[in-house]
Design a protein around this nucleic acid. Structure first.
Lengths: 198, 198
DNA sequence: GTCTATAGTCGGATAGAC
DNA sequence: GTCTATCCGACTATAGAC
């Protein structure tokens, strides 16, 4: 891994744990195995490090969504959608930085950079949204999903539930087993609402 | 309003917008109409101001939940639960600080204070959880809610949806009309899942 | 209780040697 | 590219006059 990559990796971990203002260049450098002034041979400022970290996280986030859905090409709609949600949920439980970083700065961006950050998020979120929508439309055609509910409402509910789960993970401090149970309980209520009836 | 109260109010607004590290005592003092050193006549440190702000927010959060549920003593379970969710949602849309502050530091507490903060939240959240559970149990007795779903699952789903909505508000930048529409769409899917069938 | 003045620390960022 | 040394500004916090 190049020094540049090490810096980004180190910054991602620290930013996601301590926030933007709470993270110092001294610690980022330490995590990358160099001293603070050496950072400036690779990036021009703290903001530039942060933007590169966000770009990397957004890329990983998209990749995770696409891979999770492609993984189950021939399964039922419920399995596909459950698997996607499970994938993100698990990443968070296992203390990965992707979902933590993603949601932290989606929700609470540093004010000076708010505009730029929103632009970056808009792209990756659109892709995610579209993937879910396609899965639900396909589910309706296969008569696995209640056609009387607008696709848009279902997509919104799904995304909302996923966001809520991100919060739950932090709040409850689950171990893996509790997490699985929690997710399956919430999923059951959701699926009871959207599955094809009768 | 006493100077002490003005300081807390000022700090709540700034902490919820800029985070703990992003908020300076100079600005808190400015918002309270005094100079920075005068803060120390009322509080011994930045941390102490922050703890008092959290206590106030948790109190307001509980109060909001209790009032919202008592307000509709004789309505249907769906109306009661919808009204409660709507109340919090609206507070956030109207840029109030209660829900914003509450969730910001529930999710991302400053690390040095993490333990103490969790204790404070545990109390107020328990009350909220209990209120929702009682409403759902009552709904089951009135045969308005599907008795085959465990109460616990429904409570978790409800709370999860509410957390997700907090995120949605920030992400979509709704105006009031869009917000109402969004909430009612998501509610429809949820209620379709939990209402008594047949 | 409020202020001015200031101590002491740590942040981001730069200069310049190697 | 990496380092030591350093600048400068902002921060929390305190001293002491009124």
């Amino acid at each position: 891994m190049s020094t540049r990559e090490k810096i980004i990796e180190s910054s991602i971990q620290l930013f996601s744990e301590d926030g933007y203002e709470g993270t110092s260049l001294t610690n980022i450098a330490k995590g990358a195995g160099i001293k603070k002034p050496s950072l400036y041979a690779h990036f021009s400022s703290k903001e530039e490090i942060f933007f590169n970290a966000i770009k990397k996280i957004n890329f990983e986030y998209e990749k995770m969504a696409i891979e999770a859905l492609n993984h189950l090409q021939h399964d039922t709609t419920e399995q596909k959608l459950y698997h996607l949600m499970h994938r993100f949920f698990k990443e968070l439980i296992q203390q990965g930085s992707i979902a933590e970083f993603y949601y932290r700065f989606l929700l609470f961006p540093p004010k000076e950079m708010e505009e730029k950050i929103k632009e970056l998020y808009a792209q990756s979120d659109q892709i995610y949204f579209q993937l879910v929508q396609e899965a639900i439309d396909a589910g309706k055609q296969k008569k696995e999903i209640d056609e009387s509910l607008p696709t848009n409402s279902i997509v919104k509910s799904y995304v909302c539930m996923m966001s809520g789960l991100q919060i739950d993970v932090r709040y409850y401090s689950f171990d893996e087993k509790e997490a699985e149970r929690h997710l399956s309980q919430i999923w059951k209520v959701f699926w009871s609402g959207v599955r094809a009836k009768g």
